[in-house]
Structures are given as structure tokens and as C-alpha cells.
């Protein structure tokens, strides 16, 4: 779902970055391959980067606007409704 959104709104400026929480490069790469993820992912081996983002659970998603401000977050799996209500308005300017 997030992969589709990344592709659909790439021209609008949406960039998706995955953070693999407390994982190593080998298993993270295996996960990325098996899930067919096309956006870049990084490994957060000790989890400190995720804590700096203020994570409160796994999985968790953050929406960051063009000013670098976290404007929405979601704990748990991403849904189409959440993408529509919280991601789309940030990416696609009202016409």
C-alpha cells in the first residue's frame, strides 16, 4: 500500500523511507526483497534512531511535511483510509 502511494505521488514530492528497527543488514535486506519494497530503507541496529523519532510501537509510520515537521503518525499497519486522510493532504496540494 505504501509502495503504491510512493509510486503514485512521487512526482508530487512524496518520498518514503523505511527504518528497520533493531535489525541487521542481512535480515533487513531479506525483508525488503521479500516485500518487494522499492523505496530506500536503512538499518537502525540499536534502535536509537527510532527512539529519536519517538516511536511507541512497531510498526509505526510518520508523515513529515515539506518543512520537516511531523504532522501525523500511525501506530500499526497502514490503511488506505489513513493514507487518504493523513498522507494525501500533505502531498497533494488542494486544487
Amino acid at each position: 500500500m505504501i509502495r503504491d502511494a510512493a509510486t503514485r505521488w512521487e512526482d508530487d514530492g512524496l518520498r518514503v523511507l523505511g527504518i528497520n528497527f533493531r535489525d541487521n543488514a542481512t535480515t533487513a535486506r531479506a525483508f525488503v526483497d521479500s516485500a518487494g519494497l522499492t523505496f530506500p530503507s536503512i538499518v537502525d541496529a540499536d534502535g536509537s534512531l527510532s527512539v529519536e523519532w519517538g516511536i511507541t510501537g512497531i510498526p509505526q509510520s510518520f508523515v513529515v511535511d515539506a518543512d520537516g515537521v511531523i504532522v501525523a503518525r500511525r501506530i500499526g499497519p497502514i490503511t488506505a483510509e489513513w493514507i487518504d486522510s493523513d498522507v494525501r493532504p500533505v502531498v497533494v496540494a488542494p486544487r
Binding site: 528497527f21 533493531r22 540499536d46 534502535g47 536509537s48 527512539v51 529519536e52 516511536i55 512497531i58
Partner: peptide, 13 residues
């Protein structure tokens, strides 16, 4: 919990 372990690592650091 994994998050708590990560927080402890960050505190130690």
C-alpha cells in the same frame, strides 16, 4: 520490550 531496550541504549550513550 524492544523499544525500552533501545531507549536504554540511547540513555547509556
Amino acid at each position: 520490550a524492544p523499544v525500552a531496550i533501545a531507549m536504554r541504549a540511547l540513555i547509556d550513550d
